[in-house]
Design a binder for these strands. Structure first.
Length: 338
DNA sequence: GCGACAG
DNA sequence: ATCTTGTCGC
């Protein structure tokens, strides 16, 4: 029987975790380290990644960890890795990384082994970076363990170091008028811990962006904005969509018969294996943009009439597209890396 | 007892 | 995080 992830860890464990965070925190780099980060148009940036962990409804021990890689600035999915995992640690605010980060590191390592040329140049992480109780959120943790530039993107304000989601904060949100507008989140010591960002014109609720690793806050905010087709940056959004989609179809194998009928033929992703048997990732997928769409069902529901597509990209100029030539079945035909 | 609470 | 349909707006 697998160990469960329930209850709060004893104080002794929390002390261990705090020591671990303090130790790794010394290795965080909160500045730009890559040339593309300094460029106004991010020229040189070709691949952005996103990670997420989704949970199974009635099983607090099971989850799906996913890593996706998108090209930039097109934001088409090039790579997807979804894998069912067994959670050991419970969720404790301030210690999210100890619940999720090891599975995310595993995914990055699989990518390094199988398709190193698709390694993203930056990772968007669902959660905070230095905007954290001890200045070391999951985005920092993953960044230090993988040595990849990481950006923390939280959907809710973590109320630490004097930060409060109070009336004053809400007033500032009201002042964010257009996509890209943001204001600083200052901690008690006067340090800027992150920024509240209106991620696009039609989004009221801001994102909370903070440095994870190897990127400045300014570049992190600017890049986050440029990766938002919708409120949540596309890499994280795709990781989220695909991991829950994976769970959904895993669950429906034993449940109700699939409503989807008709022509389900070629170019499928590897079939989902409900009772994880092998050591292989449950899903591993490389997509060649422009050749075919992986999913016939559009993620955007359009009841009637045409959906209003947000203008995108808003201002960035089109740069030389990275051309990857893949066949559907994991076989690499050719590529242009770097 | 009450408030806080990234995912 | 997850449970969930319709509904309102452009």
């Amino acid at each position: 029987m697998a160990r469960k992830a329930a209850g709060k860890p004893p104080e002794e464990i929390l002390l261990d975790w705090k020591r671990e965070q303090a130790s790794l925190k010394a290795r965080v780099v909160d500045q730009d380290t890559e040339a593309w980060q300094l460029d106004p148009a991010f020229s040189g940036l070709q691949r952005v990644g996103g990670v997420d962990v989704s949970f199974v409804k009635d099983d607090s021990g099971s989850a799906c960890a996913s890593l996706v890689v998108l090209n930039y600035p097109e934001l088409e999915v090039l790579y997807e890795d979804c894998r069912m995992v067994t959670l050991t640690a419970p969720y404790v605010s301030g210690f999210l990384a100890f619940r999720e980060v090891s599975f995310l590191v595993d995914a990055v390592q699989r990518l390094q082994e199988r398709e190193p040329c698709l390694m993203p140049q930056v990772l968007f992480v669902d959660g905070n970076g230095v905007l954290h109780h001890r200045g070391f959120g999951v985005a920092c943790h993953l960044g230090v363990l993988t040595d990849l530039p990481c950006i923390g993107v939280a959907k809710k304000l973590l109320q630490v170091d004097g930060l409060e989601n109070n009336a004053l904060h809400k007033e500032k949100i009201q002042l964010l008028k257009a996509g890209g507008d943001s204001f600083p989140l200052m901690g008690g010591s006067g340090t800027v811990l992150g920024r509240a960002l209106r991620s696009h014109d039609h989004s009221t609720k801001p994102l909370y962006v903070s440095v994870g690793h190897k990127i400045s806050l300014e570049a992190a905010v600017r890049l986050t904005h440029s990766c938002c087709k919708f409120r949540v940056p596309e890499p994280v959004r795709q990781a989220d969509i695909r991991s829950r989609d994976y769970i959904r179809r895993t669950q429906e194998v034993q449940g109700a018969p699939e409503p989807q009928s008709g022509r389900s033929k070629e170019a499928q992703r590897p079939k989902a294996c409900p009772q994880g048997v092998s050591e292989e990732p449950a899903a591993f997928y490389i997509h060649c943009p422009g050749v075919e769409e992986p999913r016939p069902t559009p993620p955007t529901p359009s009841p009637r009439g045409l959906p209003h597509l947000p203008r995108w990209p808003p201002t960035l100029k089109h740069r030389r597209p990275l051309r990857l030539h893949f066949l559907a079945e994991e076989q690499v035909v050719g590529r242009e890396c770097l």
